[in-house]
Design a protein around this nucleic acid. Structure first.
Lengths: 260, 260
DNA sequence: GTCATATTTTGAGCTGGATCAATTCCACCG
DNA sequence: CGGTGGAATTGATCCAGCTCAAAATATGAC
């Protein structure tokens, strides 16, 4: 544990959770911050512990997960440089709902909760920034839930690969950011299943060799996300009353939102 | 759409998202609030629309869900009296990540986003309250992800039932709060599967008749959550280095699936 | 380099939950 | 009361992903 270097503070200014803050405000906010150096496997905090700080990953990879009653672990996210953890809980003076540990050597900035609360009373912008960041996390979880509820393994893997690649159409080379077994966990799969999905993807021009992935055509990969043609899923179900079958139902009082 | 009655304002004071606010602060915050009356099926907001307000359910049930590219819907939550929606997004001036619609006749309070932002600048406590509430939502999603990743259908149903019951041990009667098909969606199941799970639960003293559930022993139901003995799941996996390896595994009650 | 360990892949088989297709149940209405 | 339409149950079958087991491949220590 050590004080952040000026370089660290420079980096912090670029980080999403602090975006939009005046340099002065940021300096005050980060006054009591410090830096943790974690070795692989080391734990930052455990689920159930009182939340006394929130964190920003400066370098390396950190795994956020829950240990289930049965002893399995459910990976919620795997974070790297610039991403923040646990900002919301620190305001509720309650407990961390998950465990975080390093999966590579990692540097993590620690910001004490009580100090952030104090800052908010002086600088409302800090509150807005924290809420915005939390909102991102929520959005991400919403997407993850949708994935788990409604997508096949193949689709989840395709979406994961797509999220690692630039938004191009043609061919593309990707490097897997961490262990395949961790990727599997992150996607709610067993390692064996991930391996088989990779094998299947080879049929549509996705070649996985160690941690190097060569995609023949990104557009095709993205199409997979919407509709898993490999395992024959989904030829666009009709579903619901997307069109208008028998809905004489009154003229929707149109919930146009409130005027500014 | 109408102005909130004094009664509504009184109720609001009791609501989690506003807890801890001074009455005056609350009065200012709710100044421009209004009440929507929704009929079943009517939509409060749709995913992708710009977020301009957040909401508190005053009465009835509101379903929060995502429509997947393939046309399925993934139910994120089903909310009732006192629960709030979309407070975090409204600060990011971005878009709703999900759709909300009424599943029963419902009354919903609408609080314009820009007003809340303005309030925060005057009253930091409002910020704390909003973050705390958002943190609850995050926690809930974390649990839901854990459920989807690591629990069997039976366990999810058991947990759902347990969440509806008082925290007692012995016998207990529960009323299902909404349609079984909606419950199924909320738990990431098809209605047919939910029906079969209920059938299986009858073997452990859980009797479901229409929307009335009679549980012979809550303690037993809760044990199921930790370990699904019905479908033979999980006899406490050794996993990790948690404890002794060759647990003297108790006398398996041997419930092989239904003999034809 | 060689050997030991951990990660990944492959194979074979099983099963939980989905799907498709009837029924049956039940609330509501004339 | 009997009829009508949506909700719920039941049956039969299928298959994606899990499990167990073994082989292959990478990683690292020396």
């Amino acid at each position: 544990m050590m004080a952040p270097t000026p370089a660290d503070l420079g980096i912090a200014a670029e980080i999403p959770v602090f975006s939009g803050l005046e340099p002065q405000a940021l300096a005050i906010l980060l006054g009591p911050a410090s830096i943790f150096n974690l070795r692989p496997g080391q734990t930052l905090f455990r689920q159930g512990e009182p939340a006394q700080a929130f964190f920003v990953v400066m370098d390396g990879w950190v795994k956020l997960y829950r240990v289930t009653p049965a002893g399995d672990e459910a990976v919620l996210n795997v974070l790297t440089r610039g991403e923040s953890l646990a900002e919301a809980v620190t305001f509720t003076s309650s407990r961390y709902p998950a465990t975080a540990s390093a999966v590579t050597p990692a540097r993590v900035m620690v910001i004490p909760a009580d100090h952030v609360v104090a800052c908010i009373r002086q600088m409302p912008d800090v509150a807005i920034a924290m809420i915005a960041s939390t909102s991102q996390h929520l959005h991400r979880m919403v997407q993850q839930i949708e994935q788990l509820m409604a997508q096949s393994a193949t689709q989840r893997v395709a979406e994961f690969l797509a999220s690692l690649a630039p938004r191009t159409r043609g061919p593309c080379t990707i490097t897997l950011p961490y262990d395949k077994s961790l990727i599997a966990g992150r996607l709610g799969l067993k390692p064996e299943s991930l391996s088989r999905v990779f094998a299947k993807l080879r049929m549509v021009g996705v070649d996985v060799r160690a941690s190097n992935v060569v995609v023949r055509d990104m557009a095709q990969l993205c199409k997979l996300v919407a509709c898993d043609r490999i395992s024959g899923h989904c030829p666009v179900k009709p579903k619901m009353m997307c069109s208008q079958p028998p809905a004489p139902r009154a003229i929707q009082p149109e919930v146009k939102s409130v005027p500014a």
